[in-house]
């Protein structure tokens, strides 16, 4: 029982991070109909920025701030320089450009930082709380992770639901031409969407780096889990990505806890398959068939 509880707790922490990556993917997909395969590479780059700052100054918080800022800048840059020119071409071209970015960013990162994985520090203790003599798999650092993600999600929901900018961004994503006729600078809202996705990705990178270590290829698996969470959630719904992330996080935690960590990624495959067999367009995706 304690083991189950502990696995659930660990699953929630991981799931929150998967949800964050899923959220970044969903934001971009909703706005530009582009699947950003390069999200993992972008995360890796911004986390390296954080690592460098941490290495030089020793301040975790300054490093976090720099990584987040780098995420904003990188998101903007990628959208403006690489995605905008191919946006009007066939849909898959943007995907290839993203694949090109992965290769390019990975190579650049290996040139600058080498390909050996590095440790990334944590701001709080990793020692689990104990309740009545039982040690839980929930540490102050896990609470920090969960808190950061929850805060980000709430801020995003408020941005989209309560502000004029959020309304404009949603309008631009749903119906670009009508939004332009209503005076929305759709080009700008798309860029802001990418920048925010870059920021969210940067946060996920800093949170996951202590777990998987930091290296050019270290984030591949995590990215795939983020994708899986986004797809389970239906690709279009921020709430869906949170649910998908938590579902995946817990399942993977049980799989690795009870069946062994080698089959974790197969577990992700299975969750995805089962979820999609039940609902082919995700749990929160558009209902059967697209609107015409």
């Amino acid at each position: 029982m304690v083991r189950f509880l502990n696995l659930t707790l660990a699953g929630i922490t991981d799931g929150m991070i998967f949800a964050t990556i899923a959220l970044a993917l969903v934001m971009i997909f909703r706005a530009t109909r582009v699947i950003n395969f390069a999200q993992g590479a972008m995360m890796m780059l911004t986390t390296f920025v954080g690592w460098t700052v941490q290495d030089r100054t020793g301040s975790y918080w300054l490093a976090l701030g720099c990584a987040l800022a780098a995420g904003l800048v990188l998101g903007t840059l990628v959208e403006r320089v690489f995605i905008r020119p191919v946006e009007n071409g066939p849909e898959l071209n943007a995907a290839v450009v993203a694949l090109g970015l992965i290769v390019l960013i990975n190579a650049l990162a290996s040139m600058i930082w080498g390909s050996t994985p590095r440790a990334y520090p944590v701001p709080f203790s990793l020692r689990g709380y104990s309740v009545g003599g039982v040690r839980l798999l929930l540490s102050p650092n896990d609470l920090f992770t969960i808190g950061m993600v929850a805060f980000t999600m709430t801020a995003l929901v408020l941005l989209f639901r309560r502000t004029a900018l959020g309304l404009r961004m949603r309008a631009g994503a749903y119906s670009p031409e009508l939004a332009r006729l209503l005076g929305v600078r759709v080009g700008a809202t798309l860029t802001i969407g990418w920048a925010l996705a870059g920021l969210i990705g940067a946060l996920a990178g800093v949170l996951i780096a202590p777990v998987v270590f930091l290296g050019p290829d270290q984030f591949d698996t995590v990215l795939v889990y983020g994708f899986t969470a986004a797809i389970i959630g239906g690709l279009e719904s921020p709430v869906g990505s949170v649910v998908g992330g938590l579902l995946l996080g817990c399942t993977l935690s049980y799989v690795s806890g009870y069946a062994g960590s080698e089959v974790t990624s197969l577990g992700a495959c299975a969750v995805l398959l089962v979820a999609l067999m039940a609902r082919p367009s995700g749990l929160f995706g558009p209902a059967t068939g697209r609107r015409v």
């Binding site: 290769v103 390019l104 650049l108």
Partner: peptide
């Protein structure tokens, strides 16, 4: 890593 970088640029 130069081949990777060049390949990425070529793709784009």
């Amino acid at each position: 890593n130069l081949p990777g970088a060049v390949y990425g640029v070529v793709l784009i």
